[in-house]
Design a protein around this nucleic acid. Structure first.
Lengths: 143, 143
DNA sequence: TCTTACATAATAATGGTTATAAACAGTATA
DNA sequence: TATACTGTTTATAACCATTATTATGTAAGA
C-alpha cells in the first residue's frame, strides 16, 4: 500500500540538498507506516534484516536530518530514550500509565494556545504537543 | 526572605517517613527559590559551596524522593538532561527549539480536554501535559 | 546501648547519544 | 572520462546523564 504522506515527505526532501539513500528511505518509510512512536533503537532493530550493516549512528544522524527538515518530531516521555513520530498528522494521544497503550484522539482548536503562547512569551511558535495520561479500560479491570 | 510554599513542602514531608536532612533542606530551598527550571547538575553546582562533599547521587536520589512526594515535577524535553520544577500548580511551558529556554505560561480550561479524552477513549484520566515549541526572541535575532 | 531503618558519599557501571575518522558514493565541472 | 568536491555510511570510541553498588554514617525506638 502506498503512503501519500511518505511521498510528500520524499518530495519535500528533493528541494533540499539532502540526498536520498536506501537507508534514509527505509527509515522514513518505517516511520510513516508506523502506528506507534518508535525509539531509535527500535527503528534500528526493525531494519537490521534489510540493512545488516547499518550503523546506529546512521539512524540517529538521519533522524536529526529529518527533524531539521520538519518531517519528524522527537518526543521525550521521561523514560530513557527519545521517541520519534512522523510529524504530519495533527492528533493527540491518550496514554495508559500502566501498560503504555496509546490511543489516538482528535481535538480541534488548540491553535489559540499557540497564539496565546506566542503573545505572552514573544516566541515565534512552531508547534505544540499534548498528551493525556490515565488508565485504560483493560488495566482498570485488573485492579 | 521566607518562602511560604517551601514551608508548606517541609511540613508535608513531616507526615511521611522521609527524614529531613541538611542536604534535602538545601535542595528544596534552592528549588523553591529558583525562578528557572534547573537540572540536577545545576542544583549540585549551586550547592557545592555549602556542601563540598555532597554526592551527585544525593541530588538525584532526593529529587526522586520529592517527586514521589508530589513536591517537585520532572520535566523531560529534547535536551540531554531533565529539569526540575517546584511549581506543581498547573501551568504549561513554552520551549525554545534552539537554546532550550523554558518560559512559564498559564492557560486555563483544558479540563475539557481531559473530559473528552475520558469519553472517547474510555480511560480514567489522571493528568495531561502540554508544551508549545518555537523560537525565543534571543535566538530569533541571531538568525 | 543495641538494633533497625534510612541517608550519604564515593565510585563504578549502564546505556542512550554523539564525535571521529576512514572508506565510499553521488554530482558537478573541466 | 577524469578529477575534485561534497555528502553519507560504517565502525568505533568517547561522552555524559543517570543509576546501582557498597561501605560508612546517623537518627530514632525498644
Amino acid at each position: 500500500m502506498e503512503n501519500a504522506e511518505l511521498k510528500e515527505a520524499l518530495q519535500s526532501l528533493k528541494s533540499t540538498k539532502v540526498r536520498m539513500t536506501p537507508q534514509r528511505h527505509a527509515i522514513l518509510e518505517f516511520l510513516f507506516d508506523c502506528e506507534s512512536h518508535p525509539t531509535a533503537d527500535e527503528i534500528y532493530k526493525a531494519l537490521e534484516d534489510k540493512f545488516p550493516n547499518m550503523s546506529v549512528a546512521t539512524v540517529y544522524n538521519n533522524l536529526r536530518v529529518f527533524k531539521e527538515a520538519g518531517l519528524v518530531r522527537e518526543l521525550t516521555y521521561g523514560d530513557s530514550s527519545s521517541r520519534f513520530d512522523s510529524n504530519t498528522s495533527h492528533h493527540y494521544h491518550v496514554i495508559c500509565d500502566d501498560c503504555g497503550k496509546i490511543v489516538d484522539f482528535h481535538y480541534p482548536g488548540l491553535n489559540e494556545v499557540e497564539a496565546l503562547a506566542e503573545h505572552v512569551a514573544s516566541f515565534r511558535v512552531r508547534s505544540h504537543r499534548m498528551e493525556v495520561y490515565g488508565t485504560c479500560p483493560d488495566c482498570r479491570q485488573k485492579h
